[in-house]
């Protein structure tokens, strides 16, 4: 069976610095995969290389069996980036962004029913009452939900998400994971610090360490090998105290 997404001995460098080393992974249709690893382990870079947003230094990338380019069936793919460009000079409503997210390939206008789909997607992330508000008026967590709605409205077969729940409170995280689950039949690749609310949804885990695949297997087996959320690490507390000691005369 052709993998939905795969890399073969992929090497990527950013600004001359190598970031990924010989990464070979393949994701089969229907799999729900967590991509785990510490900050700087290359998780986001791997996702961007898979989508053709970052060119490989060597090795190969394929989506539905095609290298990133015109022949990839982009209509089957949706991406939730880690962040979206901070406000532009012109306001855009959440609804407009989710309608425009349904464009695919060469056709410059959204398909029929795009508005209804956009409203449904915004409702599924709990933003139906803010659909017509400019995104600049939304909170960080609400903007993250717009990014999720944008992806859900595409009704993808392959959903690639980069830290989709960062900045979202625990209570709404559960609801968002349920909404993602309801988009059933999809293959997912989710970049995460820790499985968290995704634990019951994801089946396989890939752990990156220093730009290499450190572990790959059932999520329950590999998750312990991933570092805990760095924000809860003890050294972090120590670091924040250090400057105070230094500035004392």
């Amino acid at each position: 069976m052709t993998p939905v997404a795969s890399t073969t001995r992929l090497n990527v460098a950013l600004g001359g610095n190598p970031v990924l080393f010989d990464v070979t992974v393949a994701i089969a249709p229907g799999e729900a995969v967590a991509l785990l690893g510490a900050n700087g382990s290359g998780k986001s870079t791997l996702v961007k290389a898979l989508l053709g947003l970052t060119p490989p230094a060597s090795g190969a990338v394929a989506l539905f069996g095609e290298p990133p380019g015109r022949r990839v069936p982009w209509a089957k793919i949706a991406y939730v980036p880690q962040d979206s460009p901070a406000g532009s000079g012109v306001p855009a409503s959440a609804l407009e962004l989710v309608v425009a997210a349904q464009l695919t390939g060469g056709r410059p206008w959204p398909p029929a029913g795009a508005r209804a789909r956009a409203l449904a997607a915004l409702e599924s992330v709990g933003l139906s009452d803010r659909a017509k508000d400019p995104v600049a008026h939304l909170s960080g967590g609400q903007r993250r939900r717009v990014l999720l709605a944008r992806a859900l409205a595409r009704r993808p077969e392959l959903l690639i998400m980069d830290e989709p729940l960062a900045g979202v409170d625990a209570a709404s995280a559960e609801a968002l994971v349920a909404a993602l689950r309801a988009a059933s039949g999809t293959t997912s690749l989710v970049v995460l610090h820790e499985p968290g609310p995704f634990a019951s949804y994801l089946t396989r885990g890939i752990v990156l360490r220093g730009g290499r695949v450190h572990a790959d297997g059932p999520l329950a087996d590999v998750a312990p090998q991933a570092p805990a959320d760095p924000h809860h690490d003890a050294p972090h507390v120590g670091r924040s105290q250090a400057p105070r000691l230094e500035v004392r005369p």
């Binding site: 989508l51 949706a78 991406y79 425009a100 997210a101």
Partner: peptide
């Protein structure tokens, strides 16, 4: 005619590329 594609390319170029929109052309 091109307003949705131009809007999408301007709003979030990496996302638009991951949708398959030829952003450089637009």
């Amino acid at each position: 005619a091109g307003r949705w594609a131009l809007f999408a390319a301007g709003a979030d170029e990496p996302f638009a590329r991951a949708c398959g929109i030829p952003t450089r052309l637009w």
